[in-house]
Design a protein around this nucleic acid. Sequence first.
DNA 1: GACGCGGTACTCGGATAACCGATGTCCGAGTGTCGCCGG
DNA 2: CCGGCGACACTCGGACATCGGTTATCCGAGTACCGCGTC
Lengths: 156, 156
Amino acid sequence: MRMSEGVEWALHCCLTLAWLEGEAPVPTNKLAASFEVPAAYLNKCLQALVRAGILISSAGIGGGFRLARRPEKISLLDVVVAIEGPEPAFRCMEIRQRGAGAGGTFRRTCSIAAAMRRAERAWQSELAAQSLADIVAATPAAAHNRMRCWLGRPGK
Amino acid sequence: MRMSEGVEWALHCCLTLAWLEGEAPVPTNKLAASFEVPAAYLNKCLQALVRAGILISSAGIGGGFRLARRPEKISLLDVVVAIEGPEPAFRCMEIRQRGAGAGGTFRRTCSIAAAMRRAERAWQSELAAQSLADIVAATPAAAHNRMRCWLGRPGK
DNA sequence: GACGCGGTACTCGGATAACCGATGTCCGAGTGTCGCCGG
DNA sequence: CCGGCGACACTCGGACATCGGTTATCCGAGTACCGCGTC
């Protein structure tokens, strides 16, 4: 099991945009250069965030991406689901009903699937409890300022 | 993010072996046929469980796999880790230290990575809390008997 | 009749292909800005 | 001097290659059982 690398990129981009809250949008090129990741593929990830309603994009000169709502209202789970999709990691194929179990009556859901689902819910709850604002608060101000300077934005 | 299909197979195989606890081992062919999955690939998964110390294999006629310890001592997490590997789903690449953050001093661990790690720990805790014996207890006896009959084992 | 031995059938185990999704790249559509031209 | 217009540069957005990993398969090594020959 491996989470897409785009999740890390998306989270860091959202963190950067949270620092610049309310200012002019940031284009893909700037974000990609600041993390040294391929711009075209990062753009693909940011598109997914737009479709999920987390970011707002604007075209043309001076365009780019900005947060669609305040950082307090964006949870880590929102970002992860936007990139990875809503489907659970464990997908019960109901192999218990094949072969030996064929024709049997299974009124209850598979106990194994239920346990896995329960674990995933715990994982989601933990991610949903953390908002982007919490991450901002936990990050030293020096990192904020360095990124602002690097993007050519004047300090507050 | 998608969990390997082998996890479901491995869990169901362990569940079957838990029903037959203390009896003769079951070969890959029987297990594969009972779930209608490719035998050769299932064997690969069972090998991983052997390496993890969950199953014990025996070669030759009448050989096969059996549990290495009592079902109470086997957690779902043990099985999942045996198949998926011990590495976490989210792997922090420290992209914050590249580009804009290059040369900076980051004494603390990345807040994003910490949050993701925390969520994964919650997931693992939930899986570790469920043992194979719990799954056995939650499964109707009819399924036990149907599988025993299908494998050609006399009822208890 | 009992023991030892060789052959056979069956099983695990690891090395080897095929397929699929994530990763990476490219080009077109759309938009805001700037400069130029006419009034 | 001021307003309108055209061209341009920049940005997003989706369509098209490439690569790694999971999925699937095969064949060799090892082992227990069975039958035969010998003592």
